[in-house]
Design a protein around this nucleic acid. Sequence first.
DNA 1: GTCTATAGAAAGATAGAC
DNA 2: GTCTATCTTTCTATAGAC
Lengths: 189, 189
Amino acid sequence: MSTKNVSRESILAAATRLFHLQGYHGTGLNQILKESGAPKGSLYYHFPEGKEQLAIEAVQAMAIYIENDIKTYLRYDVDVMTAFQEHIRHIAEQFNNTDELDGVPIGLMAAETSLISEPLRKACQAAFEGWELLYAKRLIEAGYDPASAQKLGIVINSMIEGAITRSLTNKNGEPLQLIAEYIPILLKK
Amino acid sequence: MSTKNVSRESILAAATRLFHLQGYHGTGLNQILKESGAPKGSLYYHFPEGKEQLAIEAVQAMAIYIENDIKTYLRYDVDVMTAFQEHIRHIAEQFNNTDELDGVPIGLMAAETSLISEPLRKACQAAFEGWELLYAKRLIEAGYDPASAQKLGIVINSMIEGAITRSLTNKNGEPLQLIAEYIPILLKK
DNA sequence: GTCTATAGAAAGATAGAC
DNA sequence: GTCTATCTTTCTATAGAC
């Protein structure tokens, strides 16, 4: 069981990194196997439904990774505006050392696959909604009414995903820094 | 010359539509040719540098299409907040009749290609900056100082691109409607 | 259970007839 | 200039040895 998990986990780790950087269609199974060091046969043993199953699990893995990041930054013992700003600036930092991109969220996968695979679309939707729920909870805790907090969660998540695309295109984190700068205006009661 | 243009334009029109809906890697040249009705030979006659050149021209065509849409909605004779809201709600409408998606901006292409093709990345960057310039100009005309207007242009563009991804995932335009709802808060002086 | 070899389809690109 | 036929590579997926 331990060897099985090592092989499976290494394939999933490589898939998670590559899918989110290069996209679903831009990443070949051969590349995932080469990076993970596993042979092709074991991919279809561990992921019998092939590429689609691997992508769904990669989205779920990325969802948990980002959820932990959100929980780290949105602690209840810091000011809510500062917390959101530091969360966003933490994402922005990745775009300055442009080679070591990692943990880029699922926007690319979501846009690519929403029209072609219902299971993948639902996995992306669940990831987005999970993050938005964490945002909303933190806002409610800070005194916003639940209806507004839910809306703001979706708005903030959309802003972040869009600014990531914009930062990728600019090859720097400035768009994300700008989003962080305007958080206080958006959250002003 | 007229026949040449007809063939070239029909290939470019199909490429523009398909690239922006399905992405760069998700769209094959065969599919573009099938939809345009042109044979494969003429693609490489009109676009000697192949798929990359076709994608660059498709991004530029989409940039102009969106620019005209922005100019239509951001007229100087309507209130600036209302103008931005109607511009965004016009995009949102497309996501309600989910089958006739058309004119979805370049976010997917930008995220897919920024790391693999410098010419394509620059084409996407130029498109984004063109739209942001129009946003900023309209804000300056409405009395915002130029520095704030430029920043807001980038923030608004990022919000729209992110909300499009989010709307694609939800299969409805609600995230875009929410962005429109929060425009007055963002633009409050 | 793990891995190699390969099938079968589709990708982008090109050569050359007309 | 326009089009057809084909090349090479790469893709996902599978069969079967061990």
